[in-house]
Design a protein around this nucleic acid. Structure first.
Length: 490
RNA sequence: GGUCGGAUGGCCGAGUGGCUAGGCAAAGCUCUGCAAAAGCUUCUACAGCGGUUCGAACCCGCUUCCGACCUCCA
């Protein structure tokens, strides 16, 4: 079995990955709040954690991946007086809240499918786990770390801090939080109900304007911002599980508060490893709904956005994301996307070429090392850019062998056949996008290529060029190789 | 204001105290009726200023610039 090292945000070090109960691996990912179309930024987490998921499976771990759907909505922290996002949209659009949530959940799933991501083992909805959340809040109150106030329940951060380190994950010091300049501008609703401004809500009493509300021991209301993840991860993965993941922007307060809630409830940090991916930026700034600079995934695939020079395919997007390391920011640009698009097609072409290679008595000498290095890159905190660079180097060898400028031994060919496609398709989760071509179309294309070659044999270049040009206009590219002619769809 | 993270060749993006990242773009060559594809070759960078070192883009210090988080965020 491979030794995988991953960066643990909690300890800020690279650590050897050792499951709590091998071969089982429990992963909890913070999923989307379904109140809007997924934009480019929403893609990075699912894409990265899918590689992790796939690699673990490849290493024969039994993975349970839980990714929640937040359909209760988070409180809106502006003039909406704490009204919840989904409820607000519902009123505007005159729909049932659940209808809105379902609509955007479906959109989210469409995106995941387009990107060829493995489905989650469990995809729990916050609205379906109100009872679990209430039970957890009751335990936290019983343990003395939360208090009810005017129908709402707040987590007592000061009390918790007396015996625990609130702020360890996000690298914050409570005194700084209290003194933080940011707090001055934030006059939150219900601030007067709290013992301390840093206390956060576990349960909020609902006003009549809230469409989504539930009964609880404290009031008719709705759960707080962080408790859903704690309650659902606990229910499906236990008090302690292996990996908790999400975007870096969730570090504080979301994950910090999750740790506090779970610890107050079960006396354990819920996760052994905390993994956070960085943001996708646009012109150097985070892409976020609040900044209004997001490009929806839908628009990205159709090219229908002023910032897009063309449409990009789902696999191009995925490859673009994987060409950068997950802990660094990744800046959106058309030139970078187009570079990824071309690189990807080169890799895919090499995968096709590999099928036609015949082994030689002489060995190339680099294949085994490159394959080893590819896995080492994965083991080194999922370094997909290095992995991809190794794949490109292997692609060069495959192409050279095909062109006769290098040789590949039987043994090396076996190695390539075992690992090259496996890395591309099984672990990175890429797929060929030309699969839309059905067999009938392929038959027609082969016929046209044959006719064109006959014309070429007869030196009827006018006809052969006409065939090629017309096909080119229709979006087919013709390539003449040593083994005959091929086509690809542009 | 506090905390943290960045600054790499035309572009995107890895990485490491001394040895080619990789992709895209560009140029030349091979192949070829032409083109494309493919192959080969070329292009050698690490914000600035000091310091440590035989040697630093990589370690340390300072400076400049950029970004993230500080109770909406993937």
């Amino acid at each position: 079995m491979q030794t995988i090292q991953i960066y643990n945000t909690y300890t800020r070090t690279i650590e050897k990955f050792e499951p709590l109960q091998p071969p089982f691996v429990g992963i909890y990912l913070c999923g989307p709040t379904v109140y809007g179309l997924p934009h480019l930024g929403h893609v990075r987490g699912p894409v990265f954690f899918d590689v992790l998921h796939r690699y673990f499976k490849k290493c024969d771990y039994k993975v349970r991946l839980v990714r929640n759907i937040t359909d209760v909505g988070h409180l809106v922290n502006d003039a909406d007086e704490g009204e919840d996002k989904i409820a607000r949209l519902a009123k505007i659009e005159q729909l049932e809240p659940m209808e809105v949530a379902q609509f955007y959940t479906n959109k989210y799933h469409e995106m995941l499918n387009a990107l060829n991501l493995l489905p989650a083992s469990i995809e729990p909805r916050a609205s379906g786990h109100i009872i679990e959340q209430i039970e957890m809040i009751e335990t936290i109150i019983k343990n003395g770390y939360a208090y009810a106030s005017n129908g709402s329940v707040y987590f007592d951060v000061l009390k918790y801090s007396a015996s625990h380190n609130y702020g360890k994950l996000s690298g914050r010091v409570l005194e700084d939080l209290i003194a933080g300049a940011g707090n001055e501008a934030r006059e939150l609703e219900g601030q007067g109900e709290k013992r301390n401004p840093n206390d956060f809500a576990l349960w909020k009493k609902a006003g009549p304007e809230h469409i989504m509300q539930w009964n609880s021991p404290w009031s008719r209301g709705f759960p707080g911002w962080h408790i859903e993840c704690s309650a659902m991860s606990k229910k499906y993965l236990g008090d302690c599980f292996d990996i908790h993941g999400g975007g870096m922007d969730l570090l504080f307060p979301h994950h910090e508060s999750e740790i506090a809630q779970s610890t107050a409830c079960t006396s354990h940090n819920p996760a052994k490893y905390w993994m956070h991916h960085n943001m996708i930026t646009i012109n150097g700034q985070k892409m976020a709904k609040s900044l209004n600079n997001g490009i929806s995934v839908q628009a990205f695939f159709s090219g229908d956005h002023p910032l897009l020079e063309k449409a990009y395919s789902p696999m191009t997007l995925k490859f673009f994301i994987l060409m950068a390391h997950y802990r660094g920011t990744l800046d959106f640009s058309n030139t970078a996307l187009q570079a990824a698009e071309k690189g990807l097609s080169r890799l895919m072409a090499a995968s096709e070429t590999l099928k036609t290679i015949n082994p030689s008595a002489i060995e190339n000498g680099s294949v085994k090392l490159l394959v080893d290095e590819a896995y080492q890159a994965l083991n080194d905190d999922l370094n997909t850019p290095i992995l991809i660079s190794k794949l490109f180097e292997l692609a060069t060898i495959i192409n050279s062998a095909n062109g006769g400028t290098t040789a590949i031994s039987e043994e090396e060919l076996t190695l390539l056949n075992t690992h090259f496609d496996s890395l591309i398709f099984d672990i990175l989760g890429l797929k060929t996008e030309a699969s839309a071509i059905n067999e009938k179309l392929d038959g027609v294309m082969q016929m046209l290529l044959t006719m064109r070659n006959e014309a070429k044999q007869n030196k009827n270049f006018a006809l052969s060029d006409e065939i090629r040009n017309k096909l080119s206009d229709l979006g087919f590219e013709i390539k003449d190789g040593k083994e005959g002619s091929f086509y690809s769809i542009l």
